[in-house]
Amino acid sequence: MTLLVKESAASTQEKAPKIRGKVRLREHLMGWVFVGPFWLVFLALLIAPLAYALYLSLWQKKLIGGTSFVFLGNYVKAFTDPTFLSGVWFVVRFSLVAIPLQILVALAMALIVDAVTSLFTRFSRLMIFLPYAIPTVIGAVMWGFLYSKSFGPLTDIFGLFGAPAPDFFSKNLIFYGLVNVVTWQWAGYYMIILYAALQGIDPTLYEAARMDGAGKWQIALRIKIPLIAPALLLILVFSLIGTLQFFNEPQILRYLAAGTIAPGFTPNMYAYQQAFGLANFNYGSAISFALGGVVFVCVYAFLFFTRKRRSFF
C-alpha cells in the first residue's frame, strides 16, 4: 500500500504527461494493482532476506563477549578459508566439465530429434525428458543404488569382462560420478528447450541452403546452431547459476560416500553446515553471500566473453 502511494506520488513528477492525467493515473494504479501482490512477496521473501543476510554477515558471534561488528571480517575469513576456497574451486571445475557435456548431449539429441521424425524419435524425446520430472534428490538416490557395491549392477557388468568395478564413491571418481548424475538429470530438459527453438526455425531456410548445395551437416552447423544461439545462451546461464550452487546431489550421496564427500564439499554445503550444524549463522550468511558474489562474477564474465549481454536482456 505504501508503495502504491509512493509510486503514484512519483508519477506526478514525471516529465510531460502528454495523455490526459486522469487516464494516466488510472493506468499507473491498475499496473500496480496487478504487479503489487507479487511485489510484496518479492520484497518480503527476496529483498528482505538478502538485506538481512548482508547485515548478519557483517557481525561475528564470539564465545565470550557476545556479538560484535566486524564489517568485512567474515568475508576476509571466507576468502582465506581453505575449505571455502576448495569448495569454490570444485564447483568451478565441475561447471567447466559438466555444463559443456550436458549441453553437447542435449544439442546432439535435439538435432537428431528435429531432423528425423519417426515414431521412435518421438518416443525417445519423451523418455529422455523423463529424468526432469524426477526430484534431484530422488535422482541422486537412484544413482546411489546403481553405484552401490552391495546391490548395484556395476560389479556384474564389469565382472563379465573380468575387470574390477569402478567405485564412483572413491575420491578419484566421485567427480565423474556426480557429472553423470547431473547430466542424466538435466540433459533432457535442455534438449526440450533446444528442440522447441529448432522447431521455431523457418523450414524454407533449409530449402534455400539445400539449393545452394549445403549438406545435412552444414545445415546443422551453419544454420540451425547459430539460429538457436539465444536458447543455448539462456540454458548456459541458468545451468551455470544452478551448478555453482550445487547442493542436493552431494548432500544425498554424502551418506553413501562416507569420507569422500566432506561437509564442506561445495560452498553451499559448507554454508549449510556452518548455519545449521554449528549454529554459526553469521559466517554461514557470509559464505552464502560470497557464493552469490562468485555466481554473479562468473555469469557476468561469461556474458561478457560471449558479448551477448544485450540479447539476453
Partner: peptide, 15 residues
C-alpha cells in the same frame, strides 16, 4: 533471476 535461490535459505530461516 540471478540471485541463487539457496542463498536466501539461511536468512529466510532466521527471519
Amino acid at each position: 533471476l540471478m540471485v541463487p535461490a539457496t542463498a536466501l535459505v539461511i536468512p529466510t530461516f532466521m527471519m
